[in-house]
Design a protein around this nucleic acid. Structure first.
Lengths: 188, 188
DNA sequence: GCCTAAAAGCAAATTATTTGCGTTAGTGAT
DNA sequence: ATCACTAACGCAAATAATTTGCTTTTAGGC
């Protein structure tokens, strides 16, 4: 487990966690990530390095912890009135965010920590599922046809992510559009 | 660039590279990866740590270098007589290999090093493309219908990879089969 | 308000990384 | 074949990061 807010007693945990996370975000936006070290983060956050080592283990785990938090959507996808536009807009934004330099770095941080701290990648996956799920539910409420969430993952999310991670070419807007269209019933 | 076999003059490079790679593979199969360090690898390989630091930079890059080499297919996909079975067998094997503990670790090693050494992930992607390409060419030579390589990447490879990386549940054999079937024309 | 235990600080010990410099071994030219 | 050249390696000292034992602080339960 990475972040244990405050399990039983004792715990200025939350404060330390907040300042460390903040320090990481700040440093990451300022300097090259290969220059970011735990002693540096500790100084910036006003804590001792050993505190960070004991709580997070190592830099990859800390970075992953910060990344999953930043990757968590702050709101459900915008309701645009129809499943087609909901999904289109969400997918475009998802692709843009993930394909950006910072987005890609966060994904890699998350993936790099799997093994040590299982579950980070799973969380990201859940966030995405939840977002798609809420689009799907709205579609259902409107009486629209909408594919299964897992189908959306397979045919839309997975291709976007694969190309971001492995190809150096992020998916173009047209590409994303065509993936979305392939999921939905014929436009009338 | 990570491995420069022997660019211009000078170079017992190849020998050192071989023994270091071998040492990494050996250690990785013996012990927990979090216990594998550069000094340890150096000792095992019979070289000095500084040699490794100078050539590879750090552990993630070295691991990535070893991983891409192991990820490179040694032969084109087996010719089973039809595109359907070619693709099915290849996809099953691909999914199995990548979902295995060692496979997942290798993928993560490769992804972790992007940024420092751009191109490792791209290489993996190329290997996959080449494999699919050769199945596609055989299909064409037989006069069979076969989807575009990029379509195969989007609809078969990407979902497999996404689930391996983000979900903890690797795709089942049935899942892979259904992905393959969705790509091919109706079975007669 | 006191007690308790988890979490943080501190500092010493250990381990990993970087770096300057001398040596070695392929390579290409003679 | 020999020689000169240079990239790559080894060695060891310097620096930086990580681990660890022990002490102190602090939030929560009584």
């Amino acid at each position: 487990m990475t972040t244990r807010e405050s399990i039983r007693p004792g715990g200025r945990s939350a404060r330390v966690q907040a300042s460390v996370h903040k320090a990481v975000r700040g440093l990451l936006s300022t300097m090259d990530r290969s220059d970011v070290t735990i002693p540096l983060i500790a100084t910036e956050a006003g804590v001792t390095p050993s505190t960070i080592y004991r709580r997070w283990g190592d830099l990859p785990e800390l970075l992953a912890d910060v990344a999953v938090e930043r990757l968590r959507p702050d709101a459900p996808p915008r309701d645009t009135g129809s499943a087609r536009t909901d999904l289109t807009q969400w997918a475009e934004q998802y692709a843009d965010e993930m394909a950006s330099g910072i987005g890609r770095a966060m994904i890699r941080d998350v993936l790099a920590s799997v093994g040590a701290d299982t579950g980070n990648a799973g969380k990201c996956c859940s966030y995405t599922r939840e977002q798609v799920q809420s689009i799907a539910e709205r579609a259902r409420d409107r009486g629209e046809e909408f594919p299964d969430v897992e189908t959306v993952i397979d045919k839309l999310v997975a291709p976007i992510m694969y190309r971001i991670l492995f190809d150096d070419v992020p998916p173009t807007s047209e590409k994303v559009l065509s993936l979305v269209e392939s999921l939905l019933p014929e436009r009338r």
